[in-house]
């Protein structure tokens, strides 16, 4: 739903970043966390629309999906958690420290000259 806004923000960022370098952007790598609230299929679809008719019409979008990783402050266990059931299964401590899974990041660009 808001993936088109996100694709357009990405486009602006890629425009700014790529202007600092020579060449064309062959692909971009983004990291999307499970808790980022972004649907990856919708983002791929939005990217197709956003890139059309721009200098990035051929730029591929490569998505690295980051799982939700949490650490239990009580027993120290680090594990991958489902986003709808975050409590520690070992010691039942409810509050968990989120280590990763909230990313919404433009990681890198692959450029060709």
């Amino acid at each position: 739903m808001h993936e088109l806004s996100i694709a357009l923000s990405m486009m602006e960022q890629i425009e700014q970043e790529s202007a600092k370098h020579r060449g064309t952007v062959r692909a971009v790598q983004v990291r999307i966390g499970a808790l980022a609230g972004v649907d990856c299929d919708a983002l791929r679809f939005a990217w197709e629309i956003a890139r059309a008719g721009t200098p990035f019409a051929e730029t591929e979008l490569e998505i690295d999906q980051v799982p939700l990783m949490v650490r239990c402050p009580q027993c120290g266990e680090t594990r991958e958690a489902e986003m709808f059931a975050i409590a520690c299964p070992r010691c039942v401590t409810p509050e968990q420290e989120i280590l990763m899974g909230q990313e919404l990041e433009l990681r890198s660009m692959e450029m060709e000259t």
Partner: peptide
């Protein structure tokens, strides 16, 4: 030319 990988590491909704 072989493609070069340029690190950006920026939040997409940084603005």
């Amino acid at each position: 030319m072989t493609p070069r990988l340029i690190e950006v590491r920026a939040n997409i909704l940084k603005e």
